[in-house]
Structures are given as structure tokens and as C-alpha cells.
């Protein structure tokens, strides 16, 4: 299997606090990855390192075999899109304007959007079910609606890699399932690579091909979901007792917890 991202003993610290500690990892194309770990385990920082929002203090991140730092920002923006966790816009852009911003990396600086740009934006708004409020101001939407707009913006960027930082945290269950299903389809049909930081282990179990468990900045386990989603690993990472079973009705693995 070819690799997309190759992390070689990557570390990162804020002041003296080490948040990513000697992580080596390879991420292949056309898979749905779930990143799981308790609060403060370095999940978001890992995502930042992958999109080069931060640079590792030591170690190296390779992308398609070349160091990440060898790419221009603009090239990277056509390769990977990020859906951030916290999201706040101060200015009243309309929903459509925000989604169009996802096309900026594909448009020359002073150009008007091409027919292709318009087509992509319309299709994405349709898929993310935000068409009905395309002309509303982003500042007037609820947290969940805003999150869907931001997700649509990342889809409009139309990149081979999509990184989600708790992109379903504010969504109701119907929209959370719809969003993950959409990602899953892009992975299976178009060979997109999705890496999702997830708080809900059951959602991760249902959609992710592979899981990456982090604890205190260190990689605890990485591998196909059936192999890594075990009570032992959940115990090590979260310190809670869990049972993992295959649910015939939902046709997926489930995790239940006990205090």
C-alpha cells in the first residue's frame, strides 16, 4: 500500500508541555481514519501538524514522499482541507460566500468564479443540505448549522485529503450520520482520504476503516478498526471499562461502557 502521510518520530511542545510525543505513523490513500483519545491527548495538534498549521519541533512529516515543508501553501490548499473544531466568524458573510471561499485555492487572485466553481459550490451545498439557507448570514446561524456550512466549505475545496476536527460535535444525530456517510462515500467511491478526530467512539466504530488511538501525545495503537477497537485499548486510553460487540441490527461494532 502506498502512503500519503508518513510521520517520522514527530514531536511538538507548547512551551514545556509536550503534546505530541515521538509519533510515527503512516496514512494511506482511500481510507477513513478515526483519531481517538481523551481531551488534551494531542489530537488537534496532530491535525495542525498534518496541514502544516504548525511545524514539528523534531521529526518530520512527509507528504507523498516529500517533506511537507517543501510544498507551497497554495499547493497544500489544493491537497488537503481542514474542518476546524471551534469556529467563529465576526463578519456577516452569507452562507454561499463562505462556501465559495473553499474555491479560492482553485481560482486566480482576481478572477470571477468559473462555471466549474459555481457547479461545485451548488453541488456541495445540496449534499450538505444547506441550500435552504444559502443567502442567510453565517453570523445568524445556530452552531450546528454553521458547522455544516464549514464542512461544505471544506468539501468545495475538493481536495484528495479531508481532515475533520470534531466536525460532528454540534450536530444532531441525523446530520452527524449524514455527514459521516457522505465522507464514507467519498472515501469508497472517489478514493478520498478522510482523517476524522472523533469524540464519539461508536460513530468512529461505524464509519472508520482504521483507528488511531492517542494518549498523552503518544501513539497507543493504530490499525484496522476490528483489530484496534478492543476493551484493553479503551481501558488504556480512557481508563474506563468497556465492552465491544458486533451489533447485528446496526451491522456494526458497538461499544458500551460501565463505571
Amino acid at each position: 500500500m502506498s502512503t500519503l502521510f508518513q510521520l517520522e518520530s514527530v514531536s511538538f511542545s507548547y512551551d514545556r508541555q509536550r503534546v505530541v510525543d515521538n509519533v510515527s505513523l503512516s496514512i494511506g490513500p482511500g481510507r477513513f481514519y478515526g483519531v481517538i483519545g481523551p481531551n488534551g491527548s494531542g489530537k488537534t495538534t496532530l491535525a495542525d501538524l498534518l496541514v502544516r498549521h504548525r511545524r514539528p519541533a523534531s521529526g518530520e512529516v512527509l507528504f507523498r514522499g516529500k517533506p511537507l515543508s517543501a510544498y507551497s501553501r497554495k499547493t497544500l490548499a489544493r491537497e488537503m482541507a481542514l474542518v476546524p473544531q471551534n469556529f467563529y466568524i465576526r463578519f456577516p458573510f452569507t452562507v454561499r460566500e463562505v462556501v465559495f471561499m473553499g474555491r479560492y485555492p482553485h481560482m486566480p487572485r482576481f478572477a470571477a468564479p468559473s462555471a466549474e466553481d459555481v457547479r461545485v459550490v451548488e453541488a456541495v451545498m445540496e449534499k450538505a443540505e444547506i441550500g435552504p439557507f444559502a443567502e442567510r448570514f453565517i453570523t445568524e446561524l445556530s452552531g450546528g448549522e454553521r458547522q455544516r456550512v464549514i464542512f461544505a466549505r471544506a468539501l468545495a475545496q475538493d481536495t484528495p485529503v479531508l481532515i475533520l476536527d470534531e466536525a460532528t460535535s454540534n450536530l444532531d444525530i441525523r446530520h452527524a450520520l449524514a455527514l459521516l456517510k457522505l465522507c464514507k462515500e467519498k472515501v469508497d467511491r472517489e478514493g478520498q482520504t478522510v482523517l476524522g478526530i472523533m469524540q464519539d467512539i461508536n460513530l468512529a466504530a461505524a464509519y472508520c476503516d482504521e483507528l488511531i488511538f492517542l494518549y498523552k501525545g503518544q501513539l497507543v495503537a493504530h490499525g484496522p478498526t476490528p483489530r484496534t477497537l478492543t476493551p484493553e485499548i479503551i481501558q488504556r486510553v480512557f481508563g474506563v471499562e468497556a465492552k465491544v460487540y458486533f451489533d447485528d441490527w446496526a451491522e456494526t461494532r458497538r461499544v458500551v461502557f460501565r463505571n
Binding site: V51, R52, H53, R73, K74, A77, P84, N86, Y88, F93
Partner: peptide, 23 residues
């Protein structure tokens, strides 16, 4: 004028602007 598009992206926050190709 040259940076006006980048200013739009920066309204989305640092991380998003970076991931959309703004230094």
C-alpha cells in the same frame, strides 16, 4: 486590493485561512 481575498479567508480564523493557502 491584492490581499483582499486573503482578508476574507482570515475572517474564518487562522487555522482555516492557513488550510486555504494563506500564509
Amino acid at each position: 486590493l491584492f490581499f483582499s481575498r486573503d482578508m476574507n479567508l482570515m475572517a474564518l480564523g487562522d487555522r482555516t485561512a492557513t488550510s486555504l493557502g494563506v500564509n
